[in-house]
């Protein structure tokens, strides 16, 4: 995880100019609209028969992952900011998701069927 920070040195001089590429008001409103729409869809499908579908959980996970990513990229400016911040966040996030997944397997939350 840590070694990626070495790229940071290369980008030293880019840091000051990053500010100029920041998104402006219109982007923030659009992002808020998208987030609201996704949230509405999430809650809406909760009340439809789709709730009993096999695809319900994957659909919800995808939608919340999308919201998560959008907030991080646009509101937390990770899309525009210094690479180092991306590394500082995604490295731990991946380890966290890996730990969560590992624990879910270990406690039998995902049925793992090998060879039927």
């Amino acid at each position: 995880m840590a070694h990626d920070a070495s790229h940071a040195d290369a980008a030293d001089h880019g840091a000051e100019h990053a500010e100029e590429h920041h998104p402006q008001w219109s982007t923030y409103w659009k992002v808020a609209l998208i987030l609201s729409v996704i949230t509405v869809v999430e809650v809406w499908i909760y009340y439809t028969p789709f709730r009993d579908s096999k695809l319900f959980v994957p659909a919800l996970l995808t939608m919340s992952a999308a919201k998560f990513a959008i907030v991080v990229m646009f509101y937390m400016h990770l899309k525009y900011d210094h690479k180092l911040f991306r590394v500082l966040f995604t490295g731990p996030l991946l380890i966290a998701i890996g730990t969560l997944t590992g624990l879910m397997f270990l406690f039998g939350k995902f049925a793992l069927h090998l060879g039927g």
């Binding site: 995880m1 840590a2 070694h3 380890i95 890996g98 730990t99 590992g102």
Partner: peptide, 14 residues
């Protein structure tokens, strides 16, 4: 040495 140190750290969570 450096990369193996990083690798030890990352694998250490698995």
């Amino acid at each position: 040495i450096v990369y193996s140190g990083i690798l030890i750290g990352a694998l250490g969570f698995g």
